[in-house]
C-alpha cells in the first residue's frame, strides 16, 4: 500500500512537471453561436454534412500564426456554435452547401464573451408552408418550393425517420418527387410515403415517427431541409 502511494506521488509529481510548459493556458470560455439564415429564417441542413470554416488571425504562438481552420459543423436546424478565445475571426461559407457560394465568401466576426452571429446565406431553393398529415398508414406532406437562384431543381424528397435526426442519410423510408413533377412551382407540392413494417424499423407499428422535406438542386449535392415534425401514428 505504501509503495503504491509513493509511486502515485512520483507519477503525480512527474505529471505536474511535464505539464508546466504547454498546458498553462486557460481553456477558452467565450461562446460563438448563431444560425445560418435566409430572410431571417434558419436554413435546415443535413446533420453532420455542412460546415463553416473559422479562422482566427490574431492567435499567435511563439511567433507562428496558427493557420489551421476550425471546422464548425452546422446542426440540422441551421444552428452552429464554437467555444473560442476572444479575438477576431473570419467565417468562410464553403461550397458544397445548399446555398450559392458568394464571391466574397468571408465574413469577419469579433468574439468577445458570448457572441451571437447569424451567417447570411442564399439557398438555391427553399421550402415554405410545409404540413405533414397522417392517415391510414400514409404520411402526406404538402409544401411550397421556392426558387431563389437560377439553377435547376433536381428533386423534392419526403423523409421519414425514427429519430428526430432525419435527412438523406438518416431515414427509414423516403419518397422522391423527381424534377418532372416540379416544373410548376406556383402550386403546393404533395408527397406521400406509405409506411411499411419491415425489419429493423417497423415504421407502421410505431407510435410516432419524424418527417422532414428536403429539396435538391443542380447547384449542390446537399439539400435544403424543412424543420422536422413529429407525427403521432396512434
Amino acid at each position: 500500500m505504501k509503495n503504491k502511494l509513493i509511486l502515485l506521488a512520483v507519477i503525480v509529481f512527474a505529471i505536474f512537471i511535464a505539464g508546466c510548459e504547454y498546458d498553462n493556458y486557460t481553456a477558452p470560455t467565450s461562446f460563438l453561436s448563431g444560425n445560418v439564415v435566409y430572410n431571417g429564417k434558419a436554413v435546415g441542413v443535413r446533420s453532420n454534412g455542412t460546415q463553416l470554416e473559422l479562422w482566427q488571425y490574431t492567435w499567435d504562438t511563439k511567433g507562428k500564426i496558427a493557420r489551421a481552420k476550425i471546422a464548425v459543423y452546422i446542426a440540422q436546424d441551421g444552428s452552429y456554435s464554437a467555444r473560442l478565445f476572444d479575438g477576431d475571426y473570419k467565417i468562410v461559407r464553403l461550397t458544397g452547401a445548399p446555398w450559392s457560394n458568394p464571391n466574397t465568401d468571408t465574413l469577419a466576426v469579433t468574439v468577445s464573451g458570448n457572441t451571437t452571429y447569424d451567417v447570411p446565406v442564399t439557398p438555391f431553393y427553399t421550402i415554405t408552408g410545409e404540413t405533414f398529415t397522417y392517415s391510414g398508414g400514409v404520411i402526406t406532406s404538402t409544401c411550397m418550393v421556392n426558387k431563389v437562384g437560377t439553377v435547376a431543381i433536381t428533386s423534392l424528397t419526403l423523409y421519414i425517420g425514427i429519430t428526430n435526426i432525419v435527412d438523406a442519410n438518416n431515414n427509414a423510408q423516403s419518397n422522391v418527387l423527381a424534377a418532372a413533377a416540379l416544373t410548376d412551382l406556383t402550386t403546393p407540392k404533395t408527397n406521400t410515403v406509405t409506411l411499411t413494417n419491415v425489419s429493423p424499423t417497423f415504421l407502421a407499428s410505431r407510435s410516432y415517427v419524424y418527417a422532414r422535406l428536403g429539396v435538391l438542386s443542380a447547384g449542390s449535392s446537399e439539400r435544403y431541409y424543412s424543420p422536422w415534425k413529429k407525427i403521432m401514428l396512434q
Binding site: 454534412g49 493557420r67 461550397t95 446537399e222
Partner: peptide
C-alpha cells in the same frame, strides 16, 4: 456516401501553410 468534395481530395493544411 460520396460527396462532391470527394472527387478531388483535400490538400493537407501543412502543405498549404
Amino acid at each position: 456516401f460520396f460527396q462532391m468534395g470527394n472527387y478531388y481530395s483535400a490538400i493537407s493544411q501543412s502543405v498549404l501553410d
